[in-house]
Design a protein around this nucleic acid. Structure first.
Lengths: 110, 110
DNA sequence: TTTATATATTGCAATATTACGATTAAAAGA
DNA sequence: TCTTTTAATCGTAATATTGCAATATATAAA
């Protein structure tokens, strides 16, 4: 099928999955790392940075934006992109709780 | 194409992307959450827990195992699964560094 | 107004993912 | 040995993703 039954899971499960999925491509990790380094940049900067064509970069930016991991604001003919803390905070909360759980339980395995 | 050019990115970028991608489906988040709750379980337990058929669950388990997020060991006719800390530690390191970066720079946006 | 610049959108081909029925494999018990 | 139990694998259909050329859009500059 290729389609996931999102209505069968909790809102939190879907939310974490959407955020994780957006980070599930090396180009998008590269974009995030670049944005962390330069704080803000325009699409063209990323096109110069990555070995991908402009439409492909634009598509990756769209996915990161839809997931809530980056923000973009119009600045003349270009668009200024930066990290969106909201998305990363949600992930941080999830992984922190997960990590606490693992430490308490000392990760009992089989 | 549908294929990502993994050789064009750093090992770290690919590694984080693979781990994130594995978490990019609500069923797999549900499996992780369930494993955190019960520590260890067999495939059949997850089949009872999730609204998915046994082959589908088996496939999701395989992906989580390949990514290094869970471990499985043979126990008679069944297989005992548990969290693999190694994968989650890699993610933790990435997100912790990212978070430190954001706090230092106070996330300067456009 | 025309032209240049920057980015988004469209359309398409190649490939990957998701889901499940049917089947297989492997160990345990009768 | 035969049967049951448990989980993996195979095959397949439906859908999603990735990447790019071509095109569209929108603002700025000349």
């Amino acid at each position: 099928m290729g389609v996931s039954k999102t209505d069968l899971y909790t809102e939190k499960q879907n939310s974490i999955a959407i955020l994780s999925k957006a980070l599930g491509h090396p180009a998008r990790i590269a974009i995030i790392e670049y944005l962390l380094k330069v704080n803000t940049c325009i699409c063209g900067d990323i096109v110069n940075e990555l070995p991908l064509a402009q439409p492909t970069v634009s598509q990756h930016l769209k996915e990161l934006k839809n997931a809530g991991l980056i923000k973009g604001s119009i600045d003349g003919t270009s668009i200024c992109y930066c990290i969106d803390e909201d998305g990363f905070n949600k992930l941080k909360i999830f992984f922190t709780a997960l990590d606490t759980d693992l430490e308490i339980k000392k990760n009992k395995c089989c």
